[in-house]
Design a protein around this nucleic acid. Structure first.
Lengths: 157, 157
DNA sequence: AAAATATAGTCAACTTGATTGACTACTTTT
DNA sequence: AAAAGTAGTCAATCAAGTTGACTATATTTT
């Protein structure tokens, strides 16, 4: 596989491939560490649950899926031991979903792996270029979404 | 929505969000142009079909899904008028999937929209920075996949 | 050349992750 | 107090993938 293969690719494809590359590596490593039952969406869900817990509705809005879909995902994560549902302190209708100890371990592992990946990318293109890359992507995401009231570009992983 | 919201995001999340942003815009625009029945995967499939057609197996390998799944997708795209199955010229077992006129229109529209998006991004961060971005992403994808025999990072759109 | 094996594609049944709709319990507004 | 709204669950359905079984043709082996 030569670099020329990629050189004519449009930006969207490049973003797609680079995202796939990093997310695949993240989950390969998580699997090695014993977190084989976590799928890409869960990682993003965890970000919303940590550090203070979240309600089903909050998660649904955050992920851009229905509350019913969230409920099923929480069923799965609860069964797998990553989260538990607690009663909401003030609203007797509601539940609040919080991370278990195992959930926190997964979050910590995820962060460490992402740092490792980023570190390796720094070794390839250098600190300055990686910072520019992050800055530019941040700017572009910001510009594309500033007019929208809700953040439509749901991150899927 | 302020830019600070994004500023602490890790690289993987930035890649995810920027990819979502561009793919959403692409399909919003395609919908406006009357191509509402195309989903993100189809775009990538079209890249393999054009310009010379492709067999089901080729598409399956390219997309990283089973040949049965490809067959269903082709059913859908054929019904929607984007492709047709022709008999393979040399192998009587095989079919060759080619773009119809409507299929070509969709591909052309897609390319134009992607160019527009890229152009708008140039207006935001400048030609040099966009070129650097593309170069860096290309390098990173290349480095991450050079050891692997098959390109595991399937682009999903 | 015949037989055995492999390959391209389709059909059918099943799985998974999402959807919509209906419902219960509780909260907020009027 | 009554009406309307909200949080969560249950059930049925849908969509996009999977595995397994099959037919027809190609290729390889003997």
């Amino acid at each position: 596989m030569t670099q020329e293969v990629f050189s004519e690719l449009d930006l969207t494809t490049l973003l797609s491939l680079s995202f796939s590359t990093s997310i695949n590596e993240l989950h390969d490593r998580l699997r090695e560490l014993g977190f084989a039952d976590i799928r890409p969406v869960h990682g993003f869900m965890f970000k919303c649950i940590a550090p203070n817990g979240a309600t089903g509705i909050e998660l649904a809005e955050y992920l851009g899926i229905t509350k019913q879909a969230v409920s099923k995902m929480v069923d799965y994560l609860e069964k797998s031991g990553y989260v538990i549902r607690e009663n909401h302190p003030t609203d007797k209708r509601g539940k609040i979903i919080v991370l278990t100890e195992r959930g926190w371990l997964a979050v910590k592992a995820k962060e460490e792996i992402l740092t490792e990946i980023e570190q390796r990318w720094i070794e390839i293109i250098g600190t300055e270029r990686l910072q520019m890359l992050k800055d530019d992507l941040t700017t572009l995401i910001y510009k594309a979404n500033e007019d929208k009231s809700t953040m439509r570009s749901r991150p899927v992983w």
